[in-house]
Design a protein around this nucleic acid. Structure first.
Lengths: 260, 260
DNA sequence: GAAACCTAAGTCGTCTGATGACTTTGTAGC
DNA sequence: GCTACAAAGTCATCAGACGACTTAGGTTTC
């Protein structure tokens, strides 16, 4: 095992063994080097890995700390890399998103309060009145996040957040049929919100599933122009019912707009 | 922005802009340092981050390469850190697992072939005949992975694999009622496999959901002894219907056994 | 001519030392 | 008590050197 791997697993073990708990501070770099038997460079690379994965956090001048170790922290670490996936892979993710979003809507319907329902309605009012592409994307995202939060599972919020962040790179509302797409999307949102308000989990679930599936279809057939550039599609020949022909992959730099 | 972050985003942009595609090689370290304006140490830390997240791969003597950028690659990077989560967080993840496992079973039921059905039956025969805790865990895991694979979505396979890897740290079959638990688990597996064989997605879905929920209940109330040590539970006061009282968190070092 | 071997260049992996920046703590002064 | 300041502790970054590994190309051998 290389020096960096050695250090990485050593640090990891300090947490998994219970020696260090969430929020606690690691010993100083010098001590860690001595204990793990590696140089400072290698140790630092190992710490970077742990912090990229959301399990540790380095504070300049203070020390290296174990993160809070909430599932959200770990899952959130995906956010910076899902952006890099080509579109063909994104479609696989949409199947997961559809299932989870649907479940979240059902849970939200079972547990919704007046506060939540009012907030959802307010967001939809603003969204329908909104003409700006970027702002629409933001409101759309908040709508879905509110539902996820209402479902009561922070891990779900984080995972759906990651999926949503990825979608944002596509100019869905900016596509040729943008206005028509947005109208359809607005209606779907109303259906979901209504089902949640009347505590109908089954209706909420299917409305959400249908909404995500619709978005997926737009993505697949309209082939939106990515905003940051494009790279070649990778061939993973196992997409199930996913027609992964020569769909071009792309990725986000400028933040575009999204319909989801 | 710090030097390492600068470098990290620079590297990331090389991919997202389309300048480098999956499998392609980055310029040598020296060139990257010059282009990004950072020292070699900082650059290397940035590369480590990217590789920890599954987006790049460094090969000694050869160069740094962009990964295949399949969703599995990215999601698989979670495997090394979910082990660190305390039990309270794990229960949130089980809700996601239940939903996804259930969906995968339904998809598998719709698409199962003779090969798959035979393989599932063979695994269950072996599992029921098996007395060794560790081997049981392995067979159990293969059973679930086969179903996920049959569902046709590699991203799902990867995500469920991550969840499963985490479960393995708990000695479920080794608990006081281990034999009884394993019998119940075996029966549930048979139900799932049967529903898949007869192409009944609804039955497969509910059988799988029920199986995961059962496992979740065992985990929550039996409080298995973690094998590697334990750390204090973190309080996230938002577990939905999850009763996150003073359940002790733990983590894996020795590979224990699992029922799932 | 083909295969095996060898050599050299290119590249990453690791270590060491030095300097700067930031945080924290304790102390002195008011 | 509060502020200001100084000192110690800690991480951030850079630079240089050497070793290990891979790759490519040429050479030898059969």
């Amino acid at each position: 095992m290389s020096a960096v791997e050695e250090a990485f697993h050593g640090l990891r073990r300090m947490i998994s063994s219970g020696r260090l708990g969430p929020g606690q501070r690691f010993p100083p770099e010098a001590d860690l080097c001595a204990e793990l038997g590696v140089s400072r460079s290698s140790l630092r690379e190992a710490v970077r890995m742990l912090s990229a994965l959301g399990a540790a956090e380095s504070r300049h001048g203070s020390g290296v700390y174990v993160s809070a170790l909430r599932p959200e922290d770990i899952i959130g670490s995906l956010a910076l890399t899902v952006d890099l996936l080509p579109l063909s892979g994104l479609l696989d993710m949409y199947e997961l998103r559809r299932v989870l979003e649907s479940h979240a809507a059902a849970q939200a319907a079972a547990r919704s309060t007046d506060d939540i329902n009012d907030r959802l309605d307010a967001l939809l009012d603003a969204l329908e009145a909104c003409d700006d592409i970027e702002e629409s994307a933001q409101l759309d995202s908040e709508f879905h996040e509110t539902i996820a939060t209402a479902s009561g599972n922070p891990t779900m919020v984080a995972l759906l957040g990651v999926f949503r962040a990825r979608s944002r790179s596509y100019q869905m509302f900016g596509m040729p049929d943008g206005r028509s797409i947005k109208r359809t999307s607005d209606q779907a949102h109303r259906s979901i919100a209504h089902a949640i308000r009347v505590h109908d989990p089954v209706a909420a679930s299917s409305a959400a599933a249908s909404h995500v599936a619709q978005t997926e279809t737009w993505l697949r057939f309209y082939r939106p122009q990515p905003t940051g550039g494009s790279h070649s599609t990778i061939g993973d020949g196992s997409g199930g019912d996913v027609d992964d022909g020569n769909v071009d992959g792309g990725s986000s730099e400028a933040s575009g707009a999204v319909g989801s």
